[in-house]
Design a protein around this nucleic acid. Structure first.
Lengths: 336, 336
DNA sequence: CTGTTAGCGCGTTCAG
DNA sequence: CTGAACGCGCTAACAG
């Protein structure tokens, strides 16, 4: 059943060292010998034991991915990209989901989980506390963030401020003056800065255009459709003047808002223009204008940088700003 | 930096064997000794090397999860459930994404990937060929399927035929006679039977009610919004009589259809009733009636069964039918 | 080019 | 209750 390297060596009449070298394609092995070893290994169905290899080399050929949730558009797609790249290079992907942005005791992942289990780590859209970051640094595991800047750690992501600003500017360019904002981050931890970056950019862009920033037109969701719809309801029920456009911190919240608008007979874009960020799978079918980003590419690139670093190319891990672009669909138009 | 069991043993003035026993809570260790060892280990920051433990015990404390995609509602949620349960018991989750339902050469995961890397395997909504199944069986790794029946392998999932039948019956009960069907599985592999089960149940339920089954009203998507919308477009452009209701093989496709309907001015539910299966995150905000299932629970239970089996309880892995229930929202109503 | 010899770090008999 | 010694399966020097 379980055939080990010694069995192969015996059968091929060579030493285990030679088998090891032959199988791993190392130089300095007689082609004839290599061929024989390969043949024997093949016919015996030999597969090296990863555990033994790990113990001997100290490398696991495994990359860890730390993620707050997996059931969110950005995370799932970034994961797909990371996985593709890793798999292609024979690396394993060990998934650590925190099941939420919990803090403190709930999140003691650093020690047991990371220790000697992985060669590198991807931190997905997750604000880490400085204590957590410190612990991770101590393990000397190469590390990179994806989807949101993490202080003291390189990462690949879009320029959130620029993207938010461009989205807001699109509304302004269409002629809107009364613009509201549906921001993310209502339940997120302090260290996850993405929602803040987007909100601040929104406000700055408004002011730069000489427009009024109204705090009451600033509602918050948590990046989900459900909370997006709930926040929209709060906004729509505000007395007084109505905004003619709204910038949402994510497409998923924007879609929630659109559902709520439809329920109330608010027409989009006639009564209200809506723009989000992401280019979520639902956005095209729903006709939502958005600032598109490509999480799969983010994941792919991050994994590439990690693998390069592990491959002995120091400095391979660096900050990378990914492209985003406006996709105008049916949800934005000049104000009536 | 790296402190091993020998260091702890030396410092505590005991043998490595005693350290091992003390740390793992085995009986037959003097309480005083245990306390001292624990203290020393603690202060030295000792953490056992997983690689060494694996090699010595032959167990990896890792469960593999095989999944076609991760960026789909069902998979992401089931994964969340699996992860929760695993994490709680100190198990790792090794993710294998196939990035699609590819076949043949593209899918040689069985050997290298599974061999000696995992203690058990979860197969997520993935039809396996009999050859692949055979290979997996040979590894003697406990295995369970989630979300779709896999021949020759126990699993946890809903009764797809029953759920589809109930959804269809809901439309019939409302008084609909002209019912169409948006099925999944257009691009899926033959061995993934879920779409077929649902479609067949739809047809059978129709016939049982004495209603006509019209092949031309049977369009197919691939479980995504995009394809759902595309399929809906094909349906809506058919000449002649229009259906008054439609049963969709998944909520995501149903939502795609709703977007397409809105674009064409087809009112829901006035002109067309729509029901899906899942209770996708978008369904409640969108007001979509559905046959709800709970993938997180599916994943949780599957992981529990696997862990029980690994814990020495043979027969822990068995077939389990999970509940589903009708949630009527705004997308279904009696025909006009 | 190839074989020998040590470890890698821990679990596990088997004596004591 | 505790310790000594061996083995898990493979890689990495170091000879030859």
């Amino acid at each position: 059943m379980r055939v080990s390297i010694d069995d192969v060596a015996a059968r091929a009449k060579v030493s285990t060292a030679t088998v090891s070298r032959a199988l791993r394609g190392l130089p300095k092995v007689n082609p004839a010998t290599r061929a024989r070893v390969l043949a024997v290994a093949q016919e015996m169905g030999y597969v090296p034991s990863p555990s033994a290899t790990r113990l001997a080399t100290g490398r696991t050929r495994t990359v860890g991915v730390l993620v707050p949730f997996i059931d969110r558009w950005y995370f799932a797609h970034a994961l797909e990209g990371i996985d593709q790249e890793l798999r292609e290079h024979g690396y394993n992907l060990l998934l650590f989901s925190l099941g939420g942005y919990r803090h403190g005791q709930q999140r003691r992942f650093t020690e047991q989980m990371v220790r000697k289990q992985i060669d590198a780590l991807v931190v997905l859209c997750l604000g880490l506390s400085s204590a957590e970051l410190g612990e991770l640094k101590l393990t000397h595991v190469p590390m990179i963030s994806v989807g949101g800047p993490v202080e003291g750690c390189h990462g690949v992501h879009i320029d959130d401020a620029a993207a938010a600003s461009a989205a807001t500017q699109h509304l302004i360019d269409l002629g809107h003056r009364k613009i509201a904002h549906l921001s993310g981050g209502i339940n997120d931890e302090k260290n996850f800065v993405v929602p803040t970056l987007r909100s601040e950019a929104f406000e700055a862009t408004l002011r730069r255009a000489g427009l009024q920033f109204r705090p009451e037109w600033n509602v918050a969701g948590d990046f989900t459709v459900g909370e997006g719809a709930a926040a929209a309801a709060r906004l729509f029920e505000l007395p007084g003047e109505r905004p003619t456009a709204i910038f949402c911190g994510s497409d998923e919240m924007a879609l929630g808002l659109m559902f709520e608008a439809k329920r109330r007979g608010i027409r989009i874009p006639e009564d209200l223009s809506v723009i989000g960020i992401d280019d979520h799978d639902f956005s095209a079918p729903a006709g939502l204008s958005t600032m598109a980003q490509q999480p799969v590419q983010h994941g792919l690139l991050a994994a590439q940088m990690l693998l390069a670093e592990l491959d002995g190319k120091p400095g391979a891990i660096h900050e990378e700003n990914m492209p985003f672009k406006l996709i105008q669909r049916d949800s934005t138009a000049p104000p009536a």
